[in-house]
Amino acid sequence: MKNTSLIPVVLVGFLLFYASTDFPEWGDPQSPASSSPVSSHFIAKTGVDTEVPNMVTAVLADYRGFDTMLETVVVFIAGMAVLAILRNFSRKKPVKRGHEVSVEPDLIVTNTVRLVVPVIQIFSFYVLAHGHVSPGGGFQGGVLMGASFILIALSWDLERALTRFPINRCMVVAALGILLYAGIGVLSMALGGEFLDYAELEKVLPVSREMARYHAMLGVEIGVGFTVTAIMFALYANLSSRGRLEGGL
């Protein structure tokens, strides 16, 4: 059984090794990916079009806005699906297993977390808001923010984290993020452009067309950050407690 599974692996491996000699060399500036008109356009025109120094953010939130919006929806749907699969509304006390022991949260751990969590959260805001000019953005900031809540749940217990960020609020925040993203798209459509055509927002913002795109990108990233934060924490809360949302790890 185990040996028969090697046949497709070896076959795929042979084909991929055979094909990789046709791929461009490491770091070749003339490789098809690097010399394609698409990436050249992004590098050359991002500054003119959007005035965003970070090309990755500009491509993520503006040029490929549809893609990012629906990726956020995928994250949201995954969180909803986990909730639907695991959610357990029964009031029965879970059976205690042999390896489970109830210990008070460790003093050193909780005090360290008390110090670290605010720093993580401020750093996540920085990463989110500074995503235009430095590496960062909504996804990274959202993951950091979600990680801070997971850290609280790990060092104390799940209830403590859930009093700060209840699961219902998680879902509201996640939906709010997508609403913010789509709302900016719809607003730009209402102002006479196309869906997610941020340049039209200049009519409501006191800035130029380029800077309207710049600021709309920030709004979109905040929406992504909301959704990712909430879903990361909801995933942890449900998976660690088998859907009961109490006890946890």
Binding site: A33, V38, S39, V59, L60, E71, F139, L239
Partner: peptide
């Protein structure tokens, strides 16, 4: 450097985490 692969993988990582959770 080419920004496009980074953008594609940025979203792929997060969606990968979500699908792994599912």
């Amino acid at each position: 450097a080419n920004p496009l692969p980074h953008v594609l993988m940025l979203t792929a990582i997060v969606v990968g985490v979500a699908t792994l959770g599912l």
